[in-house]
């Protein structure tokens, strides 16, 4: 049961949050006329790393804000939390920001 530090509300139990999958996925614009392959890549293909994963969560039962987390998918350790639009640090496995 994760303890997630919402950048606005502080540490809260995971049941207040909802997971939104991989972060920092670039959405192809209409102007760039993405080919089917590029569109499928955006839509369906994921890094799904065994290890550090940058993902987005929303504090659904709290402030309602989306934010980013860097989490280890094996140990579930959360090594970095940052707001939407904020540049993320260089968090690597085991290092806290």
């Amino acid at each position: 049961m994760l303890l997630i530090t919402c950048p606005w509300c502080g540490p809260r139990d995971e049941i207040e949050f909802r997971w939104g999958g991989e972060s920092h996925i670039r959405r192809p614009t209409l102007q760039s006329s993405p080919q089917d392959e590029e569109w499928a890549d955006y839509l369906f293909y994921r890094k799904n790393p065994k290890g550090l994963h940058r993902e987005r969560w929303v504090h659904e039962a709290g402030c309602g804000q989306w934010f980013n987390i860097a989490r280890d998918t094996v140990s579930h350790e959360i090594v970095e939390v940052y707001r939407m639009g904020e540049a993320h640090g260089q968090a690597e496995r085991g290092k806290r920001p």
Binding site: R18, G20, R27, R56, V58, E60, G64, Q65, W66, M84, G85
Partner: peptide, 13 residues
Amino acid sequence: AAWLEEWLQCEWP
């Protein structure tokens, strides 16, 4: 409502 928020906050801030 959650869907609108997600697009607004994550894709079109």
